[in-house]
Structure formats: structure tokens, C-alpha cells
Design a protein around this nucleic acid. Structure first.
Length: 523
DNA sequence: CTGGGGATGGGGCCC
DNA sequence: CGGGCCCCATCCCCA
């Protein structure tokens, strides 16, 4: 019995000890979880605080910008002119007074790289200008815009707990296991149906997601090569305007706030970081980069104004994704072989292998523009550092005697994007509009824009009904010589394009091509 | 499906 | 050098 009694006491003691240990373990686990959760909440809180600060800064910036614009009659003149142009397609949506494309375009039109949103206290825009100084290190080339006195959030992140959140005694923000984050310029757009900014958070990944099927775009041709890469050879890289973020998470896009407001950790709390709202999908809208907007802003209708040439990229929608290295998303351009992002990659690749890039770019005068500097995080800087370093390398190589031949008849002016050679500066500048999407010449009757003046004139025959080319065989008249030439084949019965597979002949190469695609696509 | 017309993009050349 | 034109290619729309 005594043994049993001792055994009972022993078991009781063991049970007691076990209970104490279990309680201690649970308490420890709870503490750890609470701490982690607190850290997470602090991250979110900090993000919100940063966003608020950034928003205030942007508002201040906007006010300053308005003052600047108000003091610049020429700028306002351009703005007003464009508003007149844009009355057909530009809409003032909600409180955001901005020129937007028709529904489904998700592009903005601005008269200047710096655009003022009127009538909305919440609408802000921010402009990124990547300034590539000659032979300078890539780092300083990317300017970080900060308000005065604002410290780098990476280095100075004051931890603040939200009411109701568990207190964390002394968490060193710099040593917290928080995910590295990247501050980005944020454009908050309110009232723009296709440009909804759900919330603002930091982002880790800059994803340029393009690849729109321009066929589905009513203004497809105008958007065809929008958002092409910045000019690597230019002293000033393009201005990325309206870096807009769309934060999506768990359906409603407000999950971040929801998560933040969640009750603090407890025994029952399951923390699944992967399911927390930081797990945000990237999603960018198509046809985001409309260099035409820039064109119409810089140039008057059908008139090329060389002043203030900049390259503007509208609306790069950036979303948040965890653990993804900064990269240009080349996989997101399915269905469009000429996607903008792909262009950027191509251009980067070409830079790497282009020893003769010369710097003949209309972007050179960018320095004359009083642009707002950039606000980019280091991941972005890293991204563009690659570009800029490539740019510098290419430029250095060019200066080293790559393509500077003394023979003026040589095609020594190389396109900085595709390395194609041209005999004179003007040609290469015009050609580079292929890459930049710059369309300085706009039709004053239908808002269409063109990269070349002769194309504009040719287009305007559509409105005038002028058909100077008439068929001598019939009464058909055509606006273009090529149309007449093609038409003449109707009379001659010429079918010079034969299918190599079945022998069928066609009058036009395009017919043959379609035929082969449909009939012999498997060959 | 094919053909025709319209429109646009881009290069080259001429004046 | 800039404007203009020619030419070609491509795509879209429609009958």
C-alpha cells in the first residue's frame, strides 16, 4: 500500500510538474506567437504610417506642383489644349480629374509628366524620373524622393502598436524578422473605374505587366508599343508616370486592413503568413503604358513641339508579391509577341550585347524638364541599376570607338533599342518612336496620333474624303497609292502569290499567308 | 473562306 | 535637314 501511495504521490507530482511545464510551454508558445503577430502588426502599422506620410507628402507635392503649373502659362496652355482634345475620350471621373482613355483602356492622359489632379484631395500622382548621369555610379542615379526630414523607412522604422494589439516591449525594427520591403512611389487614384487603388502597401516586387492584345483595343494602334523600355542611351531615362499600385488580396482588396484589425494572437489564433494579405497577387492592367499620352501632352495637334521632350510611362500597376525577386515579368505577355515588357527585356538584352549604342535620343532634353524626382525603393533601384549600368556600359563602349565612324554615309546612328543603324540623327530619332511609342502628331478630328507627320497627313484623308488615286480601268478612287496598286490587280487578275503547299494562287501576300495559316498550319 | 477595301506602321528615297 | 512621297507589310472589317 505504501508503495502504491508513494506511487500515487509520485504520479501526482509528475502530473503537477507536467502541468507546470505544459503551462510554461504554452505560455512560451503563446508569447512567441504573440510576439510574431505583434511584429507583423507592427509591420502593417508601420506600412500604414508610411503610407500616410507618403500620402501627405504627395499632397504637398501636388499643391506645389499646382503652384508651379500656375506660374507656367505655357504649360497650362498645353494642358488646356489637350483638355479640348480629350473631351471626346477623356473623362473626369469622380474626384480624379485626369484624362483617361475610354473604358477598358486604363491609361491616363496627361499633358505633362507632372499632372495635377484637380478636385480631389485624395488623388495624387507621383512621377519617377530616373536620371542617368554620365559615368556615374548607378546608385545615385536613382533619386529617392523623400519629404524633408523623412528618414529612410528601412533604417528608421518607428514601431507603433495599434490599439488593441498586444504590446511588444522592445522590438528593434531593424532586427525584426520582417520581410524586406520596398518603398515605391504610389499613385492613389480615386474614382477611376479602371484604375482602382485598393490600398497602399509596400511592395516587394516591381512587376511590369503588359502584353495587351492590342487587337482588342479600340485604339489599339495607338497603344501598340506603349510602355516600351526606357531609352538606355539617353542621358535621362524615361519618366515613369503614375506608378499605380493595385493591391489585391483575398478578394476584396481590403484584407490588409482586415488583417490588421484582427484580434491579437491567442491560443486559438492560427497564423498563416502565407494567407495573410501580404500574399498579394500581382496583377497589372493591360495597356498601362501609354506613351501617346505623353505625346499629346508635349506636342500640339499635328505640330511637333520639341520642347520638353520626355518619355512618360503611364500607369505602371504594381502589386505585391512575396518572395519574388525584382524582375520584369516576361511571362505575363502571353498572346502578344510585342508586349511592352518584353520590349524592355529585349532592350536590356540588346544592351548587353550592343557594343555600338550611340546616344541619339530625343530624350536628351529631358533634363530641361522640371520633373519631380523619383520615389523608388531599393529593389526598384536595383532593377534600374541594371538598366543604367547597361546603359553606361553601352555608352562607354560606343564612346570607345564602336560606331563613331567618320564616314557620314555610314549608318552610324544606331537605335538605342534595336541597334539598327541609320544615316542621320533625325532618322534614328524617328525610328526610335517605334520603341518609345511617341506619337507627336495628333489628328485634330479624331484624337488619333501618329509618330510621323506624313502618316498624319495620310490619315487625315479619311476625314477629308480625299482620294487622289483613281483607277484608270474603273471609277474606283483611293486615298493611298498602295490601295490603287492593290486594286489594279483586280483588273489584271494578277495572282503572283502561290501557295507552296497546294499551288493555289492569291493576289496578295496576306491572303496567301492567311491561307497557309488556315490550311497548312500543321506543315 | 475568299476577296476587296480601308487603315496604319515602318523603311527608304527624293527634293 | 526636314518634308513628302513611295513602297511594303500587316491587320481589320465587310461582302
Amino acid at each position: 500500500m505504501a508503495g502504491n501511495s508513494n506511487g500515487m504521490v509520485f504520479h501526482t507530482q509528475i502530473a503537477s510538474i507536467m502541468e507546470v511545464l505544459a503551462n510554461a510551454a504554452v505560455a512560451e508558445i503563446c508569447k512567441v506567437v504573440d510576439d510574431d503577430y505583434a511584429v507583423f502588426r507592427l509591420e502593417i502599422t508601420q506600412s500604414r504610417k508610411e503610407n500616410r506620410a507618403l500620402r501627405r507628402k504627395l499632397l504637398e507635392l501636388k499643391v506645389t506642383r499646382e503652384r508651379v503649373l500656375a506660374s507656367r502659362p505655357s504649360s497650362i496652355k498645353i494642358l488646356d489644349r489637350y483638355r479640348g482634345m480629350a473631351r471626346g475620350e477623356g473623362h473626369v471621373t469622380g474626384g480624379h480629374r485626369s484624362f483617361v482613355k475610354p473604358a477598358g483602356h486604363n491609361t491616363w492622359r496627361d499633358d505633362q509628366p507632372i499632372t495635377v489632379d484637380e478636385g480631389s484631395g485624395t488623388s495624387t500622382q507621383q512621377v519617377i524620373m530616373i536620371e542617368s548621369a554620365d559615368a556615374e555610379a548607378a546608385g545615385p542615379e536613382v533619386k529617392q524622393e523623400r519629404s524633408e526630414g523623412e528618414e529612410d523607412p528601412w533604417h528608421s522604422r518607428d514601431i507603433q502598436t495599434v490599439a488593441g494589439a498586444p504590446q511588444v516591449a522592445t522590438e528593434d525594427p531593424t532586427t525584426t524578422p520582417a520581410q524586406p520591403r520596398t518603398r515605391r512611389s504610389i499613385t492613389e487614384v480615386s474614382g477611376t473605374p479602371n484604375s482602382i487603388l485598393k490600398s497602399e502597401t509596400d511592395t516587394k516586387t516591381l512587376t511590369v505587366h503588359t502584353g495587351s492584345d492590342h487587337r482588342s483595343d479600340p485604339e489599339r494602334l495607338g497603344l501598340r508599343r506603349l510602355g516600351c523600355p526606357p531609352a538606355p542611351g539617353s542621358e535621362y531615362l524615361p519618366v515613369f508616370q503614375q506608378i499605380q499600385k493595385m493591391v489585391h488580396s483575398h478578394g476584396d482588396g481590403n484584407a490588409l486592413d482586415t488583417e490588421v484589425d484582427d484580434p491579437s494572437c491567442s491560443y486559438a489564433t492560427e497564423m498563416d503568413p502565407g494567407n495573410i494579405s501580404l500574399d498579394l497577387e500581382r496583377q497589372t492592367d493591360q495597356s498601362k503604358w501609354d506613351w501617346n499620352q505623353y505625346s499629346s501632352s508635349v506636342y500640339s495637334e499635328g505640330c511637333l513641339d520639341k520642347k520638353g521632350e520626355v518619355i512618360v510611362v503611364d500607369e505602371v500597376t504594381v502589386k505585391v508579391e512575396r518572395d519574388v525577386p525584382p524582375t520584369w515579368n516576361a511571362d505575363s505577355h502571353q498572346g502578344d509577341g510585342h508586349s511592352q515588357g518584353r520590349d524592355f527585356l529585349d532592350y536590356r538584352e540588346s544592351l548587353e550585347t550592343n557594343p555600338n549604342v550611340m546616344t541619339h535620343s530625343p530624350l536628351h532634353s529631358l533634363r530641361d524638364c522640371d520633373l519631380v524626382s523619383t520615389s523608388m525603393g531599393h529593389s526598384d533601384s536595383h532593377l534600374f541599376d541594371q538598366v543604367l549600368n547597361s546603359n553606361d556600359r553601352a555608352r562607354a563602349q560606343a564612346q570607345g570607338g564602336g560606331a563613331t565612324s567618320g564616314n557620314s554615309k555610314e549608318k552610324r546612328f544606331l537605335c538605342m533599342f534595336c541597334n539598327k543603324g541609320f544615316s542621320c540623327l533625325q532618322k534614328v530619332e524617328i525610328h526610335q518612336r517605334v520603341h518609345t511609342g511617341e506619337k507627336p502628331y495628333s489628328c485634330n478630328q479624331c484624337e488619333k496620333r501618329f509618330s510621323r507627320q506624313d502618316h498624319l497627313k495620310r490619315h487625315q484623308r479619311v476625314h477629308t474624303g480625299e482620294k487622289p488615286y483613281s483607277c484608270t480601268q474603273c471609277h474606283m478612287r483611293f486615298a493611298q497609292a498602295g490601295h490603287l496598286k492593290m486594286h489594279l490587280k483586280v483588273h489584271t487578275g494578277e495572282r503572283q502569290f502561290a501557295c507552296t503547299h497546294c499551288g493555289k494562287r492569291f493576289s496578295e501576300r496576306s491572303y496567301l499567308k492567311i491561307h497557309q495559316q488556315k490550311k497548312h498550319s500543321t506543315l
